[in-house]
């Protein structure tokens, strides 16, 4: 792909992706206005925003393996937008929880965070997301250099906490959180140093054949 044409396609792809990531929010707003969020609208919004935060986090994590499998560069160039949308839905999720679900009753919210492990875990995941969202700009990437990569590895912990948060709150049917967990494991497995392992093994074999 020639450079200029490639840039143009990437820009178009970013616009489409932006709209796609915003669509779930648009649908929720439309249904809220129309009063068609179901019998328990607060629960619908709480679950909807949480689902999309976790889904987009996993999609973000899929970009590195996608680049490795395809050899294309564009997945990495879409990664920041995906990550920021995951953060956007996490902010909405927390807002719905604090405002509509807990009705800003701070003493009960504090009790929730401290005493109920699944809330604490979810809250921790949100706190860890903040520095990643804040340092997502090119300027911060440059300023932090190698430390930027190290910092942004926290996303693995955040995704794991997100899955745990979901797993812990379900009453009996664990299928959906387990599916998210399985996807996360696959995405993490891609990051194991397979190539290094292979070359180490080859090295060992070579050692043995030495006289």
């Amino acid at each position: 792909m020639s450079g200029r044409r490639g840039e143009w396609i990437l820009r178009a792809a970013k616009v489409v992706l932006f709209m796609a990531c915003l669509a779930p929010f648009g649908i929720m707003v439309r249904e809220a206005v129309a009063g068609s969020l179901g019998a328990n609208p607060v629960e619908t919004l709480l679950h909807g925003t949480g689902d999309w935060a976790l889904r987009l986090l996993l999609v973000t994590l899929a970009m590195t393996p996608l680049r490795r499998l395809t050899g294309l560069a564009w997945p990495i160039r879409l990664r920041r937008m995906l990550g920021l949308f995951a953060f956007f839905y996490a902010v909405l999720h927390l807002t719905v929880y604090l405002w509509l679900d807990r009705e800003l009753a701070w003493s009960t919210i504090l009790e929730d965070i401290l005493e109920r492990p699944y809330i604490g875990v979810g809250f921790l995941a949100f706190l860890l997301l903040i520095p990643l969202a804040a340092t997502s700009t090119r300027g911060w990437m440059r300023r932090l250099g190698r430390r930027w990569t190290q910092l942004h590895r926290a996303v693995y912990v955040i995704a794991a906490l997100g899955v745990l948060h979901y797993l812990w709150l379900v009453k009996a049917d664990l299928r959906e959180p387990l599916l998210y967990g399985a996807i996360l494991l696959v995405l993490l497995a891609f990051r194991l140093p397979w190539n290094q392992l292979r070359s180490v093994r080859r090295g060992l074999r070579a050692d043995r054949s030495d006289p």
Partner: peptide, 20 residues
């Protein structure tokens, strides 16, 4: 309940901004 408070509840059908 070990995972949530039972002090208040939401009444179904009262809408998005109704108090518990």
């Amino acid at each position: 309940h070990p995972r949530w408070s039972q002090k208040r509840h939401r009444v179904i059908g009262e809408g998005l901004f109704a108090r518990k």
